[in-house]
């Protein structure tokens, strides 16, 4: 393995600057812009490759990945509720965060593959879309039951037309329609700048994580342990599924990374409106200050080993 990826160093810089109370602060609009470009880049890349080489047997993959999205929070919930002794709304909310996915973590994994020249199934961005919503639905149902108080109409609008789904699917569609040649004029922004944009995104993520770091210990050892063990266990499940679906090493790595990642955008927003009793500080601290740093610093290289073990044997 060749050293640490410089984009990860930007994350550490953000954490350091935040911890030392530097006045560095990215305006909200910049964060928004940077994440929009990242989502579109990931979508476009997948779309172009699909245009070049249509994926076969995709239906089985789609069903299996969605099923995993429903199962992961059901595995997390009992641990949070009975081992962690958390109240039901909090346990359900954290389970939803960990069953859902983080596009930021996925972007770092994609950069990792590109840097080491690892091939992966080009429709992998589709996994992000498929895994985002199911866990959030499960979390809400665990917390509230199929209650009439929940505004399912507004909620599903929020979930299925959320920024990340619209931009990823939109990017996939545009890339697929335009094809590799058609996208060339846009390469400079979406592909050549990808790592630079990712670096700025990670700088901001570092600043945000630093803000939550001081909360980590207040919430106790269990949350820290969960934030470190859950990604490992879930990445194990994701890699096993990737292997069962016959994905390449890179594909297994990406599916493991997605399963091991925890949402910090779609899930917090949805849980805040649907399950207001849950304390958002718990789930955000675990997802942002523990699991996200763990995944990009330690997790992804580890999931790479895991993927190699599945595809090439011990």
């Amino acid at each position: 393995m060749s050293g640490i990826d410089p984009v990860v160093l930007f994350f550490l810089l953000g954490v350091l600057a935040g911890a030392l109370r530097s006045d560095l602060r990215l305006p909200g609009a910049i964060y928004e812009f940077v994440s929009i470009v990242l989502l579109l880049s990931i979508g476009l890349k997948g779309g172009i490759e699909l245009a070049r080489q249509p994926a076969e047997g995709l239906a089985v993959d789609i069903v299996a990945v969605v099923a995993m999205g429903f199962v992961l929070p059901l595995l997390a919930y009992p641990v949070l509720r009975w081992v962690g002794r958390l109240p039901r709304p909090d346990a359900a909310s954290i389970a939803a965060h960990y069953g859902s996915v983080s596009v930021g973590t996925f972007a770092v994994a994609v950069a990792y593959c590109a840097r080491l020249g690892i091939d992966y199934e080009k429709y992998a961005p589709l996994f992000v879309v498929l895994l985002e919503v199911p866990a959030i639905l499960v979390g809400i149902v665990i917390a509230k039951g199929l209650s009439r108080d929940t505004h399912w109409g507004r909620l599903s609008h929020e979930l299925f037309l959320g920024k990340s789904i619209v931009l990823l699917l939109g990017g996939l569609a545009i890339g697929w329609i335009a094809g590799p040649e058609g996208i060339v004029p846009l390469d400079a922004l979406f592909f050549d700048l990808f790592k630079g944009i990712l670096a700025i995104f990670l700088l901001e993520m570092g600043l945000i994580a630093a803000r939550h770091l001081s909360d980590v210990l207040r919430h106790g050892v269990f949350l820290v342990a969960f934030g470190l063990v859950a990604p490992l266990a879930f990445a194990g499940i994701g890699s096993a599924l990737g292997h069962a679906l016959g994905l390449s090493t890179g594909g297994v790595l990406l599916l493991a990374t997605l399963a091991g990642s925890a949402s910090y955008i779609a899930a917090p927003a949805a849980m805040r409106t649907a399950v207001p009793e849950a304390n958002p500080a718990l789930s955000l601290t675990a997802s942002l200050a523990i699991t996200f740093p763990f995944n990009i610093l330690v997790g992804i290289p580890l999931y790479h080993r895991l993927a190699l073990w599945w595809t090439q044997g011990p």
Binding site: G28, Y31, E32, E204, I208, R211, A269, A281
Partner: peptide
């Protein structure tokens, strides 16, 4: 409920 910095969407 603590500092609300509006640095990103969950915190505004």
């Amino acid at each position: 409920r603590g500092r609300r910095t509006s640095g990103w969407e969950q915190d505004g």
